[in-house]
Simulated assay, not measured.
Amino acid sequence: MDTLIHSLRDITIRRISVSEMDNNVYLLTSKESGAQLLIDAADDLAAIQGLLTDAAADTSATPKLALIATTHQHWDHVRALPGLVAATGAKTAAGTDDAAALPVPVDVPLDHGNIGNFDGFDVTAVHLRGHTPGSIALVYQDPDGPAHIFSGDSLFPGGVGNTQKDPVRFAQLIDDVSARLFDVYPDETVVHPGHGKPTTLGAERPHLKDWRARGW
Rank of each mutant, 00 (worst) to 15 (best):
A125P: 08
G113A: 07
L102A: 06
D97W: 11
N114C: 01
T88L: 02
A57C: 00
L67T: 12
Q49G: 01
V126C: 00
L84P: 10
L67P: 02
G113I: 10
A87L: 08
S60K: 08
A87R: 00
G83T: 04
A99M: 11
Q141K: 13
L65C: 10
H127V: 10
H131V: 11
D142K: 08
I48M: 13
Y140M: 02
A94N: 11
A80F: 03
V126S: 01
D111W: 06
A57L: 04
D111Y: 07
G134Y: 09
Q141S: 14
A94M: 10
A137N: 07
D98Y: 11
D111L: 13
A101R: 15
H131F: 06
G120Q: 09
V108R: 15
V106A: 07
A99W: 09
T70R: 06
P109K: 13
T71Y: 14
D122V: 05
G120M: 08
A93K: 14
A90P: 02
T88R: 01
A66R: 15
A86I: 01
L110S: 03
H112M: 06
L65R: 06
P143W: 12
P82T: 04
P63L: 06
A93C: 13
A87Y: 01
N117W: 03
L81C: 12
D144H: 12
D44P: 00
P82N: 09
K64V: 05
H72P: 01
A69V: 03
G113T: 07
H112K: 11
A80Y: 01
D76R: 03
A101H: 14
A137C: 15
D107A: 14
R79Y: 00
L84T: 11
P143I: 12
A46K: 10
T59R: 02
A80R: 00
V85C: 09
Q49T: 04
S135C: 14
H77L: 09
T62C: 00
A57Q: 07
L84N: 07
T62E: 15
N117P: 05
D122P: 00
A125N: 13
P133T: 05
A101M: 11
A61P: 06
T88K: 05
D54E: 04
V104I: 08
H131A: 04
T53F: 04
Y140W: 12
V126I: 15
H131Q: 13
V106H: 07
S60A: 15
H77R: 05
Y140T: 08
A90R: 02
